[in-house]
Simulated assay, not measured.
Amino acid sequence: MFTALILTYIGAYVVGLYVIGSLWSVLELAISYLTPYFNPTEVYPLWKKYGNWAVVTGCTDGIGKYYALELAKKNINIVLVSRNPEKLKDVAQEIEKHGVKTKIIVADFSQGPEVYQRIEDELKEIPVGILVNNVGVQYEYPMPLCEMPTSKAMEMINVNVVAVTRMSRMLLPGMEARGRGAIVNVSSGSELQPHPMWAIYGASKVYVRNFTRAIRHEYAPKGIYVQHLSPLFVSTKMNNFSKKLLDGSLFVPDAETYARSAVNLLGRVQNTTGYWLHGIQYTFYKLAPEWARIKIGQLMLKDFRSEYMSNNVAKTK
């Protein structure tokens, strides 16, 4: 009887921890939205908290572009780092309409280590207060590992894994010396479980999640805020393998809507999807056992693959 009672208490404790852990992201979102109303003195302008220069990688389209624009609306100067010089100029002109300064750095992160010394030289005189590691590469369409060219696989690792590591390593010393700063590492909901048909992409985002949480513990005592941002599907060209995703929906916001929400959570929440409906989805996904999440994810990606194949077969006829 006594043993059964102890086991009951242990079971209740474990279940309680699991539920709280699953709901924590939603609780953090609620707290972040309510804080300005109940304790407005804790809400400071981002430039005052972290500094008036931000670096945003992968910033010419999608989330990166609109994240940079939202920061500019908050009076933060932007360093734009991406590979297309014409698009960089266009985004810089759009950002400067908000009365802030911009700097352009042309860099192709898929080239690997050779790009970083030049970026560091370009940033040497700029006191970067916010780093947004947004650059990323997605699959052209869901596929098994051996269907992906080796060059594409290495590009994905260089961009999704190496860039977040090298950019953080590059700018953390300056933030540490100033005693303040913020790093936002953009991961993905695909970090939740292994993804058959997205094996490399999903694994790269697990790296981003673990890397982000580790350096947070290393540098939070030194005044540096490190945010793990984990969006689910957003209507951007990264998902152009599916018209359903590009068309968007209540649960698939456009990049502008998503970025506006995510920037409002900067400095308030350490781990977040960045968008309240994604937070609810993420919570329910975590409540399911991993084997079920793997199966559901695989079925979903097979559906996207079929959609892509059907559309491309139709175009070739």
Score class of each variant (00 low, 15 high):
Leu5Gln: 12
Leu7Phe: 15
Leu7Val: 15
Tyr9Lys: 11
Gly16Lys: 01
Leu17His: 14
Gly21Lys: 10
Ser22Asn: 13
Ser22Gly: 11
Ser22Met: 06
Ser25Pro: 11
Pro36Tyr: 06
Tyr44Thr: 14
Lys49Gln: 15
Tyr50Ile: 01
Gly51Leu: 08
Asn52Tyr: 08
Trp53Arg: 00
Val55Cys: 02
Thr60Ala: 00
Tyr67Ala: 02
Leu71Met: 07
Ala72Ser: 10
Lys73Arg: 15
Val79Ser: 00
Pro85Ser: 08
Lys87Glu: 02
Ala92Thr: 05
Gln93Tyr: 11
Glu94Cys: 08
Val100His: 01
Lys103Thr: 03
Ile104Ala: 00
Ile104His: 01
Val106Cys: 03
Ala107Trp: 08
Ala107Tyr: 07
Phe109Gln: 01
Pro113Arg: 08
Glu114Gly: 07
Tyr116Gly: 09
Tyr116Glu: 12
Gln117Gly: 12
Arg118Ser: 15
Arg118Ala: 15
Glu122Cys: 07
Leu123Lys: 06
Leu123Pro: 01
Glu125Pro: 01
Val128Pro: 10
Val128Lys: 08
Gly129Thr: 08
Asn133His: 00
Gly136Ser: 09
Tyr139Phe: 03
Tyr139Cys: 06
Pro142Leu: 04
Pro144Gly: 06
Leu145Thr: 04
Cys146Leu: 15
Cys146Tyr: 14
Lys152Arg: 15
Ala153Cys: 04
Ala153Thr: 02
Glu155Ser: 10
Met156Ile: 01
Asn160Val: 00
Val164Asn: 12
Val164Pro: 12
Thr165Ile: 05
Arg166Ala: 15
Leu172Ala: 06
Pro173Cys: 09
Pro173Leu: 09
Gly174Ser: 11
Gly174Asp: 09
Arg178Val: 12
Gly179Trp: 11
Gly181Gln: 01
Val184Gly: 02
Ser188Pro: 00
Ser190Thr: 15
Glu191Gln: 13
Pro194Tyr: 00
Pro194Met: 02
His195Lys: 12
Met197Asn: 13
Trp198Ala: 05
Lys205Gly: 02
Val208Gly: 03
Asn210Ala: 11
Phe211Trp: 12
Thr212Arg: 05
Ile215Cys: 09
His217Glu: 13
Glu218Lys: 05
Glu218Gly: 05
Tyr219Ile: 02
Pro221Asp: 09
Ile224Arg: 04
Ile224Glu: 07
Tyr225Asp: 09
Leu232His: 11
Phe233Pro: 05
Val234Thr: 02
Val234Pro: 00
Thr236Pro: 03
Phe241Thr: 04
Phe241Gly: 07
Ser242Arg: 04
Leu245Trp: 06
Leu246Cys: 05
Gly248Thr: 02
Leu250Glu: 07
Phe251Thr: 13
Val252Ile: 15
Tyr258Asn: 07
Ala259Leu: 04
Leu266Ile: 14
Gly267Glu: 11
Gly267Ala: 10
Thr273Ile: 06
Trp276Lys: 07
Gly279Met: 06
Gln281Cys: 08
Thr283Phe: 05
Phe284Ser: 07
Leu287His: 00
Leu287Met: 03
Ala292Val: 10
Gly297Ser: 13
Gln298Leu: 13
Leu299Arg: 15
Leu301Thr: 10
Lys302Gly: 05
Asp303Asn: 13
Arg305Pro: 06
Asn311Glu: 15
Lys315Pro: 04
